[in-house]
Simulated assay, not measured.
Amino acid sequence: MTPLTVPVISDSPPNPSVSKRSLNQNCSLVCSVVNVSAVSLSWYKGNSVLSSISVSDLSISLSLPLEIECLDDSYSCVVAYSFTNQTTHLNITQLCGTCSATRQLFIQKALIITGVVLLLLLLLVVTVGVMKFWHRRNNKPAIETTEEEVVYTDATFTTHRAPDTKTKGLDQTEYSEVFLR
């Protein structure tokens, strides 16, 4: 008994009718089986059938093209025999060169956008903090200050004897006003 043929997924030449912008985001693939009879060949995305082809002839080769989105690698190719299936899952990074570049570009853009958003949030936090600081600083009660010049002088106190009128012979101290200049 001959072994069952397993489908092979390979790159296919890009479709000339597809625009250059689409080529950067899409990848053209082909799923093939050789020397099969009474089988169907199908492309799946997850559990959904995208396209299918059947043959009942003996010893024929089947090919089924598919253009996929680069950011999604949930594709598989299935050859269905009357009694079993053979499946090959797509490894998008090995087959689609344009997809690898697209994924890297997508990741770079996501990182740049994330960085810009974080920078804007940081700027907002700093701005709010500075505004609160200035608000508190400007709303504090002002300490009153005057710009008067203070002059220090030496004061001299002396005692002298006054005429003995009320103190009956005791020394008396007289105080007088002190003027500062």
Rank of each mutant, 00 (worst) to 15 (best):
V130T: 10
L29R: 01
Y81I: 00
K45C: 07
V33R: 00
V130M: 05
I68Y: 00
C70I: 02
R21A: 10
S40M: 03
V6W: 11
A110F: 14
N47P: 04
S52E: 04
V125A: 09
E174T: 05
K45E: 05
G129K: 07
L90Q: 06
P13M: 06
I92L: 02
N24T: 15
S74T: 03
T93C: 05
L41N: 05
P16Q: 06
I113Y: 13
V30F: 08
T165M: 10
A101N: 09
V78T: 03
I107W: 07
S32F: 01
S42G: 04
A162Q: 08
P7Q: 01
V126Y: 12
W134K: 05
T156E: 01
A110N: 14
D171C: 14
L122R: 12
T145M: 03
Y75N: 08
C27G: 02
D11S: 13
E148W: 09
W43Y: 02
D72K: 02
R21H: 12
S56G: 14
F106E: 04
K140S: 07
L90C: 11
P14R: 13
A110R: 15
L105P: 03
T88Y: 00
V79L: 07
L119I: 14
D164Y: 04
G115I: 14
Y75C: 08
T153N: 00
E69L: 00
F157A: 09
P141Y: 07
F83N: 09
K168Q: 11
L118W: 15
S74A: 04
I113F: 13
S28D: 15
T146P: 07
S19F: 13
L121M: 14
V6F: 10
P3I: 12
V78H: 09
L118C: 12
L120T: 13
L90E: 03
E174K: 08
N85Q: 08
P3D: 09
V128I: 15
N138G: 02
Y44L: 05
L58S: 11
K109I: 10
S82M: 13
V8P: 04
V116G: 03
K166N: 12
L124Y: 08
V33Q: 01
P141S: 11
Y152C: 12
R136M: 05
V55E: 10
L123H: 12
A142R: 13
S63Y: 05
S51L: 01
Y44E: 00
N15C: 11
R161C: 14
G97H: 09
L62G: 00
I143P: 11
T173C: 15
N15H: 14
L122I: 14
L41K: 01
S22L: 13
L50S: 04
